[in-house]
Design a protein around this nucleic acid. Structure first.
Lengths: 251, 251
DNA sequence: GAACGTCGTTCGGCATTGTCGAACGTCTGA
DNA sequence: TCAGACGTTCGACAATGCCGAACGACGTTC
């Protein structure tokens, strides 16, 4: 990739670093991690501060992400076609299934949640729009993995006893996903939780996202520990509906 | 402000432009608006694309915001202390008042909504976390204006017949806000809607944000078209509680 | 209490880096 | 078929941003 702007790449690396850490970071810490001179790092940070992408804690001098990024992030949501086409179908799916609905895309080897509808009946839930989930341990992620050209992830992190950590085993599971047209995940990320997902296709059949439901195992699965066919049907219908909308969107 | 990095400022300007417009923008359009050479603009956009901040529609060649920004935006929410301290108090306020709750800060002459709790009982509402609202036509904004050092906005856009567009009139209203310790807004942004807000203070009494409720005029106001004292009390109590949390947060 | 370490910040000199403008291939509409 | 606009590439120049050293302030340690 010729002719990329060095300082912008460095600025982006700083922002990603600030997003990854748990909170504020010091100038020296950032400069050391990215192997930059302190002066250079300071100039970039000052500029990022000027445009509102980072803020500085006056007391400690440490830096953190800035408020302008929040608006950019939600502006992305407004633009995103996958999300806008999905919204009309996510609410009915949540109502019919009685479970929380999430829609995701791939971002840097993870699942980025671009829409989230809470479980209808329920109490307080945390909104995880913008969250990054592992590809190999979620139903959404398995769908996205199954239909993408890039290979499997190198490292498969283990979250529970049931997480698939063998690449061979994962490859077989993805074959099944492709054959069946949908994916399930049962206690592979969080104990007691299960999920079902199906692919969202754009024009030409390219898979651009996934839609799915997630909830307690005893509600998602039947007595034989298999996903309820009724719920699978709901999810697949919703996925097809969104795909139809997306395909028809472009002329 | 000496020593700011030119290319980063230009990249930020492009991102803001993409966020402001309704959707995709062409390269020429961007280059013309920012008065840059097409080649220069292309280099910046290519870099932003490389880091995931913008995406390109392969069909039309137009550019739009990228998915990585969504994650950065929500990461900002996770870090933001104003928000994290507010969450525990926003839910009870929504429950007691029966109205939607929002928390905001100032960003570039507007109110940035950093937290939003839906009205308890109600049907579908759109989440406006990350939205930018006018300072002079919202209760949150009036509170933030009243306690900030910077002057009044130059232009006061008119949204309804009741919007305050005279700077003198606004200054008087802000005097009242400072005297009373809370602000109201009645059909000044949207017909039929009203809101109440109070300041959130950090250590030293500095106002860093505002919390408030908003809903239909007939629920927020009494028969004399004045905010219910009961609701005002709830909002002010919540604001004080958050302020206490914030002040006690630092040692 | 003084010396040390580390922090964020500033500054000048050098050359790396990004900018510019022109030219290219492609596509849409006239 | 031509004209215009589009996104993209490339080479040359010099402006630009990078580096490293030095600064003042703060907190810690002996």
């Amino acid at each position: 990739m010729p002719g990329t702007v060095q300082s912008i790449e460095r600025a982006a690396a700083i922002l990603r670093m600030l997003a990854g850490g748990t909170g504020r970071l010091g100038l020296g810490e950032i400069a050391r991690s990215l192997d930059l001179a302190k002066g250079t790092t300071h100039g970039i940070l000052r500029t990022l501060q000027g445009v509102g992408f980072v803020e500085q804690d006056k007391a400690s001098g440490h830096y953190q992400l800035g408020a302008a990024l929040l608006h950019l992030g939600t502006s992305y949501l407004d633009i995103n076609e996958l999300r806008s086409r999905s919204i009309n179908w996510a609410d009915p799916l949540a109502a019919r299934s009685g479970e929380a609905v999430r829609i995701g895309t791939v971002l840097e080897g993870r699942v980025l949640v671009v829409h989230h509808v809470f479980r209808p009946d329920d109490t307080f839930q945390t909104l995880d729009i913008g969250a990054l989930l592992p590809l190999h341990a979620t139903a959404l992620g398995k769908v996205l993995l199954a239909y993408r050209s890039a290979g499997l992830p190198e490292e498969l992190e283990q979250f529970t006893r049931r997480t698939v950590v063998e690449r061979r085993e994962l490859a077989l599971a993805l074959d099944e996903v492709r054959a069946a047209g949908w994916a399930a995940e049962i206690e592979e990320l969080t104990l007691g939780q299960a999920a079902i997902a199906a692919p969202i296709r754009s024009h030409g059949g390219l898979v651009v996202g996934a839609i799915g439901i997630s909830g307690l195992v005893e509600r998602i699965c039947d007595t034989r520990y298999r996903p309820h066919p009724r719920l699978v049907g709901y999810v697949r219908e919703a996925a097809r509906a969104v795909s139809r909308d997306l395909g028809a969107a472009r002329h």
